[in-house]
């Protein structure tokens, strides 16, 4: 085979393979969107309805508008409107993620430059992440009830900070490692304080890594289910928990409403994901690759 044909064959193979995976990924996503526009009887139809002939906005209206307006007509409803869940989810995940990334970056800097924790200890940090949350669920809920943190935004945020911090440290450290120490020394000679050096010299250089870390941790906190299920009651509800409420015992599962809510849950992450995709790859090397 000539080199030319080989290359052509490779291109063919490449796009077939990519195309197949593209379909595998895109189809379920398409299905969520399509379902959110389907009327009730088409959610679980035999044979399946691939695109509704009579698309409707009812699912969105029912999920996102005020309770009383649709009460009279809707079969399945949640009393707690997702706006509150959305607000809680936004506050919890943004606050937790910001603190985690900020603190994680500082720790990573300390580790990278001053070895405030040895590398082995750093790895040990990962253990926090690796304890399945279910393992500590009961003591946490008892402890939280006693110190008044159950059913609060703060309580949930603290848990998320602790469980995601290892990732933040690990991801940002690999970027800080890449910044030549000479730059800092230069800044120090010019009389910049440690904090100023971090803020004005180091941070701009590792921005892409920090951004990638931010997104990854946002994903983890935004979609967390188990802790949110166990540690919330009436005052706080997050979106993944809200989603499970659209479920009927005699009407069947309310797929259309769930889909309408799911679209709302997923869009913010997708938008952020698109915006920062360039930074993402670099952030995921966890210090295991050397910069060329």
């Amino acid at each position: 085979m000539s080199r030319q044909t080989k290359k052509k064959l490779y291109t063919l193979f490449r796009f077939t393979a990519l195309g197949i995976w593209f379909c595998i990924v895109a189809f379920p996503v398409y299905w969520i969107v399509a379902t959110s526009f389907k009327p009730d009887h088409e959610w679980f139809a035999w044979p399946p309805v691939y695109w509704s002939a009579t698309p409707t906005m009812d699912n969105y209206k029912s999920v996102w508008t005020s309770y009383t307006k649709t009460l009279a007509t809707q079969e399945a409803e949640s009393m707690q409107k997702p706006w509150i869940a959305l607000q809680n989810s936004l506050i919890i995940s943004l606050v937790a993620t910001t603190i985690t990334v900020f603190f994680g970056t500082l720790l990573a800097y300390g580790v990278s430059r001053y070895r405030i924790l040895s590398e082995v200890r750093m790895f040990n940090l990962l253990m926090f992440r690796m304890i399945p949350p279910i393992v500590v669920a009961v003591p946490i809920s008892i402890y939280y009830s006693n110190i008044g943190l159950i059913d609060t935004v703060t309580g949930l945020a603290i848990i998320y900070i602790i469980t995601t911090l290892p990732y933040a440290v690990w991801m940002t450290k690999s970027f800080i490692d890449e910044v030549p120490i000479e730059i800092e020394q230069a800044a120090a000679i010019l009389g910049a304080s440690k904090w100023r050096t971090i803020g004005e010299v180091i941070f701009p250089l590792v921005r892409s890594g920090v951004v990638a870390t931010f997104l990854f941790i946002l994903i983890l906190t935004w979609s967390e289910y188990l802790m949110a299920l166990i540690l919330t009651k009436t005052d706080v509800v997050t979106l993944p928990i809200q989603l499970a409420k659209y479920e009927g015992a005699t009407e069947g599962r309310v797929y259309g409403r769930q889909a309408a809510l799911a679209v709302g849950i997923t869009i913010p992450l997708v938008v952020i994901g698109c915006l920062i995709r360039k930074h993402l790859v670099r952030g995921f090397s966890f210090g295991m690759v050397k910069k060329r």
């Binding site: 949640s78 009393m79 707690q80 009961v138 809920s141 008892i142 009830s145 006693n146 159950i150 059913d151 166990i230 009651k233 009436t234 005052d235 499970a244 409420k245 479920e247 015992a249």
Partner: peptide, 24 residues
């Protein structure tokens, strides 16, 4: 206020309330 969860989940959540002796 109500906590709106499925009737199939409430037994567990109610027992959890018993465990913590909560008056919520």
């Amino acid at each position: 206020k109500i906590q709106d969860i499925s009737v199939f989940q409430i037994p567990q959540r109610a027992l959890a309330e018993a465990v913590s002796r909560s008056n919520k």
